[in-house]
Computed example of a mutant assay.
Amino acid sequence: MTSTRVAREPLIQRSLRKARRAFGPAGLFFKGFVKHPAMVGAIVPSSRRTIERVLSRVDWENTKLFVEYGPGVGTFCRPVLDKLRRDGTLIVIDTNPDFIDYLSRTIGDSRFIAVNGSAADVEEIIRAHGFEQADYVLSGLPFTNLPPGVGPAIMSATHRVLRQGGAFLVYQYTARARALMGQYFHRIDKGFEPVNVPPCVISWGWKD
């Protein structure tokens, strides 16, 4: 990059580029937060304790398809793949092409599929990869910050795409999303993880 181009480049873009180079995945996550704070929802990835608690209700032996909305830099992807059966599949969906490109380049696992798209289109996305239903869907999307109508569309599509006995695993930083979740999932187990930035509210919505 020439000195003239550097001079013309906006300060925030230079800062984001330097952060991504200096901090790797953390820098990319921070870039995603700055560009789309309503979609990322947090400034740092979830803690290890949050990951373990959110995934603690999953029946891994009987999980063939696990779906994640908003995977970011893969904070949950690798722990899910570590637990997932050998013939299982993890499909992640994100509207941010930077995250999808990063995950596609850094996760070399034949069970992993990264899709640049909307969670509201989850039914069409999994069908395109040979599935009719998912066993579990995980989401860290900030439902209370999404544009009008998007949250209900995602909730409705998620309920339809889950198999009977499957669950929607949601981690948020407030409990406000549970009211929306309760319109589609009649049994919701509740959890909380204080060792996270910020502390994390967890909900497991079951499709009985």
Rank of each mutant, 00 (worst) to 15 (best):
T144R: 09
K35H: 03
I154M: 11
D101Y: 09
V161E: 05
D189A: 14
M39H: 00
H36F: 01
D135P: 01
V80S: 02
R48P: 01
P10L: 13
P10F: 13
D121N: 04
L65H: 08
V80A: 07
G140N: 05
I43C: 07
D208R: 04
E68S: 08
N96M: 12
D87V: 00
A157H: 06
G72N: 04
P142I: 05
F29S: 08
R53I: 06
D98N: 12
S56C: 13
R127S: 11
A134G: 11
S118Y: 11
S139H: 03
L81Q: 03
P25S: 14
G32W: 00
F131N: 10
D87P: 04
L138R: 10
F30Q: 10
M181A: 13
T50H: 13
S118C: 10
L169R: 01
L146A: 02
A26Y: 14
L138D: 02
I154P: 06
A134N: 03
V197P: 11
T4P: 02
I100F: 12
K31P: 08
R49W: 12
A134F: 07
R8Q: 15
F99H: 01
P198I: 00
D135C: 14
R49N: 15
E124N: 06
V73I: 13
V161A: 13
P198N: 03
V115R: 04
L169H: 01
V80C: 07
T158D: 02
P152C: 03
M181N: 11
G140H: 04
R21Y: 03
I125W: 10
R176Y: 14
P25K: 08
V122M: 15
V54M: 07
A179D: 12
L180S: 04
P71W: 06
I43L: 03
S203E: 09
D109H: 00
F143D: 06
A7G: 03
A42S: 09
E132V: 09
R48F: 13
R111E: 00
A175G: 12
G70I: 09
V54L: 11
R127M: 13
N196E: 06
D208F: 06
G149L: 03
R86P: 00
L11Q: 10
F168K: 00
N96P: 07
H36R: 10
S56G: 12
V161L: 09
P79Y: 15
W60I: 01
V115I: 02
E61W: 06
A22T: 10
R176F: 11
V73M: 04
D59Y: 07
F185I: 06
K83G: 08
L11W: 12
R20N: 15
F99M: 08
T63A: 08
T2W: 00
T95F: 00
F99P: 05
A179H: 09
W60E: 13
P199W: 02
P194D: 05
L28W: 05
G182T: 07
P148H: 12
R178L: 13
D109E: 06
I51W: 02
P147N: 05
V92D: 04
K18D: 05
R5S: 15
Q172T: 09
S47M: 00
L16C: 04
R20E: 15
M181T: 02
A167H: 01
